[in-house]
Structures are given as C-alpha cells and as structure tokens.
C-alpha cells in the first residue's frame, strides 16, 4: 500500500507539486495523465526520493518517511521498496542484459549470484528476451532495452513499480511490444504507477486514472469515468486536445 500525504515540491521557487494526497492499494494499477509541466513525473520521482519533497509524508509498504526530516537511510529504505522504469531506459551500459537484471538482486538484496541468475533468467523470459541474455544494451533496439528495464524492476519484486513515460522515447512501431509486456505484468497483480501519454493503454490497463494539472490532482476515477464522463472542465479540455486525432479517425470510419 502507498500513501502520500500533502506532498509539496518546488524548483527555484516555482511550485510544481502543491500538496498531493493519494492512497494506492495493493495490486492497483494507477495511471497519471496530464499536460507537460503538470508535475506528474515529479510526483513519481518523489515517490522514490529521486526528488526530495519539501514537505509531506511518503509511505510505501510499511516504511513511512516524513520528507522534511528524511535521512539518507530513510530514502534508501523507501527506494528498496520500489523500482522504476525510465523514459530513457537508463540501463547500465557496461553490463550485459542479465547482469543489468542481476545487479540489484546481488548488490542490494544480497541474493547469491547463482540464485540471482536463475531469478533473472525467469524474469527475462517473461519479457521475451531469453535469447539476448549476454547482449550489451548498445546492441539492442529501444523496445528491447525498455523490456530489460522492466525486467530489472520486476526482478526486485518490489511493493510498487513506477513507470515514467515508458514508451515516450520509442519509435512508434516499438511501442506495442513494451505496452503488451506492461499489460501482462499488470495482470499479475503487481502495484503499478504509470505516467503515460498512451490514452488507449491507460484506458485498458488502469484500475484508476488520475488527471493532474498545475501541481494538483484535478480529478480521479475509473478509466470509464475519466475518459467518458469527466467532471472537470480542465480534464475535458485535455482529453479533447489529446484525442483530437482519434476523433478524426472515428469520423473517417463513419464516413466510410
């Protein structure tokens, strides 16, 4: 379970998060939508203290930390409860695929190398990369690299996996393979928080959708509520703007 209480964060005096309250249940898949600059990535990064909030309480699992007086040790223990998948993959360039996945298990979780290898192979099979174990990241396509990133997060068996726009850096034809892997692990009951611009993916995979704008959560609800009956004007405008294209294709289909 994840609880955020009154999270505040600003960069150079401009306030990016203006008091975020959020509770995420075990096994829930939550997607965060919103225009750029709305604070959604910052919120995600506050969850594992890659950004340190100025105020507020972060709780993941049974680790609770008050951001104001969080020590290095506190931040480390929160990070050990979570894992993150990055927009730009951020794989360890000097390590092979399997070493990338093993690294956290061996170094952080102190799992024996042999067990870590078995566990990593299992996870890599799940993301469909069994034939690439000894490749370096530079030898893989973007989609394959991102699947390694997902495997690296998954192997740690964390309380929650945080996805920071996992498909935004990918070529359009590679987006599908990554989304289908994420969908698959969502069905395994792993708690996930996903920041994304893929609307149909969000609609399909989430239990709950948050719409953020101007550093606050403007509206939240089930995908059905948010996408088909948004209450807030800001949500409506955003969805309208972003789905302009799909409305257009729908129209075209009608014409044909």
């Amino acid at each position: 379970m994840i609880i955020l209480k009154d999270i505040k964060k600003s960069f150079n005096k401009s306030q990016v998060l203006r008091g975020i309250n959020l509770k995420i249940n075990r096994g829930e898949v939550v997607t965060i939508l919103g225009p750029s600059g709305s604070g959604k990535t910052t919120l995600l990064r506050c969850l594992n203290f890659l950004e340190r909030p100025e105020a507020g309480i972060v709780q993941i699992g049974n680790i609770q930390v008050n951001a104001k007086n969080a020590t290095k040790k506190d931040m480390l223990s929160v990070r050990k409860q979570s894992a993150m998948v990055f927009q730009h993959y951020n794989l360890f360039a000097h390590k092979t695929v399997i070493e990338n996945v093993m690294e956290g298990l061996v170094v952080v979780k102190k799992v024996k190398k042999r067990e870590a290898r078995i566990e990593s192979e299992k996870v890599l099979e799940k993301v469909g990369l069994s034939d690439k174990l000894h490749f370096y990241p530079s030898q893989l396509s973007g989609g394959q690299q991102q699947r390694v990133g997902i495997a690296r997060a998954l192997a740690l068996n964390p309380e929650v996996i945080l996805f920071d726009e996992p498909t935004s850096a990918l070529d359009p034809e590679l987006v599908g393979e990554v989304l289908s892997v994420i969908k698959e692990i969502a069905q395994d009951g792993i708690t996930m928080v996903v920041v994304t611009h893929e609307m149909s993916f969000a609609k399909e995979v989430s239990d709950r959708v948050l719409f953020m704008d101007g550093g606050v959560i403007v509206e939240e609800g089930t995908p059905l509520e948010i996408f088909h009956a948004p209450k807030e004007e800001r949500t409506r405008r955003f969805l309208h703007r972003i789905s302009g294209e799909s409305f257009f294709t729908a129209l075209k289909e009608q014409v044909n």
Partner: peptide, 27 residues
C-alpha cells in the same frame, strides 16, 4: 557517464558509494 544511470542505480536501492564504484567508475 549519464546521470540517468546513476538515477537507475539509486532506484534499485544502491547507495551512493555502490552506484559510484559499480556503475559509474568502471565506465
């Protein structure tokens, strides 16, 4: 060495020293 790799090292729970000596310095 890209800061992204440092962040991903932190995100899996490595300490500053682990991230420096295992991820950044070798590269």
């Amino acid at each position: 060495v890209s800061t992204g790799q440092l962040e991903s090292a932190y995100s899996v729970g490595m300490t500053k020293i682990q991230a420096m000596f295992r991820i950044v310095l070798p590269q």
